[in-house]
Amino acid sequence: PEAADLRALSRHLYEAYLKNFPLTKVKARAILSGKTGDNVPFVIHDMKSLMEGEQFINCKQIPIQEQHSSALTAGLEEIIGAYQGPEYGFLGMGMNVSGQPPPDALELRFFHSCQSRSAEAVREVTEFAKSIPGFIDLDLNDQVTLLKYGVIEVLTIMMAPLMNKDGTLISYGQIFMTREFLKSLRKPFGQMMEPKFDFSVKFNILELDDSDMALFLAVIILSGDRPGLLNVKPIEQLQETVLHSLELQLKLNHPDCLQLFAKLLQKMTDLRQIVTDHVHLIQLLKKTEVDMCLHPLLQEIMKDLY
């Protein structure tokens, strides 16, 4: 009976994962391996293709663009206001009246668009967290703390299926951006993604599927050692159950890889370091980039984080 309960939990979390995360690993790997027929991603590998990629996305999203047309041509306040909705695209901010961006602002504009998608991803992760049995019964302050500390780790893990050694899918799999291009962006933007590529390439060797990922994400969210938690015990109890479910899932789903559970848990240490470095980089950007504005939700999460 206990194993049956653990399998039911696994199925429940997998369903919640499918419901809340639009680009699954199955879909991402199909796109990356060219198995989606004519539906190939647009490749961004230099500044010219970055501009073309922007048009490519805008053409696909005319109704959304019309809704936000005032934000496209306006200043800082409107840029903050333009952080609305997942379909807004990967670029499309800080354009001047002629529709051409000032070239030196490209990195910042791209960074703003990434933030927009990240904020939407935080909403998706929050909905997923709420579906973990027992999560919404935790103290509300502790729910906030678990998300504040867990969400960037979850988003980092979720980048892995979108990446290979040469680049990453963005904009819901419609765009493939090369690693070399990301590396070529001016400092410190060019340094931001390299650690994620290194981590993802190693993480992908474990060959987790979407149902494994669902459990692993729940384990990360239910970390009882986050600073400031008021009531640790119920969180640890929930995590223990999900850990048992993950262990069983990996045994059944990857019978030939006996150490997979241990290997996966070891990744959590690397993950914390990557997130700490990422947050420090963002905090540095806030000080050095005068034109940078951080999305209010990401500000909330990153303030006093590490």
């Binding site: 904020a119 909403r123 906030v144 909330e300």
Partner: peptide, 21 residues
């Protein structure tokens, strides 16, 4: 904590839609 994390709190309480975000 809730005061410092209003949007997260709203997301948890279902009072923020994707459009509000």
């Amino acid at each position: 904590l809730k005061d410092k994390h209003k949007i997260l709190h709203q997301l948890l309480q279902n009072s923020t839609s994707p459009v509000d975000l």
